[in-house]
Design a protein around this nucleic acid. Structure first.
Length: 227
DNA sequence: GCGACAG
DNA sequence: ATCTTGTCGC
């Protein structure tokens, strides 16, 4: 599918933070996702593994599933030497480059993308789901496994139980229990989405495990191919 | 200065 | 993210 190249990835951490502050102003929040019109949902993930020469390689996978039946219809892969260190708050500058390549290899055009990481639930309100949403110009959702920023009360221990994730007096996401008896996941809007429909979509994409099927499929695909 | 810190 | 088997509990 087409993806807009918004800026150079090879910049310093300081420049990256400045860029995030500029881009955060362009994000569109509070836009409901029309679930009745969703046909394809993509899961996005990146794994890092040393190659034969010992170089840290970033391996990206975008797996597209049909909705609401959740059957895999396409997988796009990409790999390259990991270009940026892991710095909390700047994850998109580490995983964005490989993802751009993987997205460009997509034949289908997903209606919504779910990322392994945050969207608005970020210190500057521009986690990887939000950032890449600006490149994709499609609805995106962040689904993280652990907290980055914000405070919350433990959600009810039942499937669908949730509580608000609040930071500086602002609701930046939802702490969602996708299954009873498991740790909750952190859902936040990326770009062109709203929190209510994002949580609804994530629940409808979660069939049997803690994480939504698209994310699990992407995680498996990203971590199991060789370069 | 101290603690927190997606993947 | 990644290193890794068995094991506790529903």
């Amino acid at each position: 599918m087409n993806i807009t190249h918004r800026h150079d990835w090879h910049i310093s951490p300081t420049q990256a933070v400045a860029l995030q502050r500029e881009m955060a102003a362009e994000v569109v929040y509070n836009r409901p996702i029309d679930l009745s019109a969703v046909r394809l949902v993509a899961g996005v993930d990146v794994s890092v593994k040393p190659d034969a020469a010992g170089v840290a390689m970033s391996q990206a996978a975008v797996v597209v599933l049909s909705f609401p039946d959740l059957t895999v219809v396409e997988t796009a892969l990409a790999a390259m030497p990991t270009p940026f260190p892991y710095i909390p708050g700047l994850l998109s500058f580490r995983e964005g480059p490989v993802l751009e390549t993987a997205f460009s290899r997509l034949k289908s055009e997903p209606d919504v993308f779910i990322f392994d990481g945050m969207g608005r639930a970020h210190p500057r309100r521009i986690g990887i789901a939000t950032h890449m949403g600006l490149w994709l110009q499609k609805p995106t959702i962040g689904c993280g496994k652990t907290l980055l920023t914000g405070r919350f009360e433990p959600p009810p221990d039942e499937r669908g139980g949730y509580s608000e994730l609040v930071d500086k007096g602002e609701v930046i996401g939802v702490v969602l229990r996708t299954r009873a008896g498991v740790k909750p996941v952190f859902i936040s809007v990326g770009h062109l989405a709203d929190l209510t429909t994002s949580v609804d979509l994530v629940m409808r994409c979660t069939s049997k495990y803690r994480l939504p099927d698209p994310i699990r499929a992407a995680h498996n695909a990203a971590g199991q191919f060789e370069t």
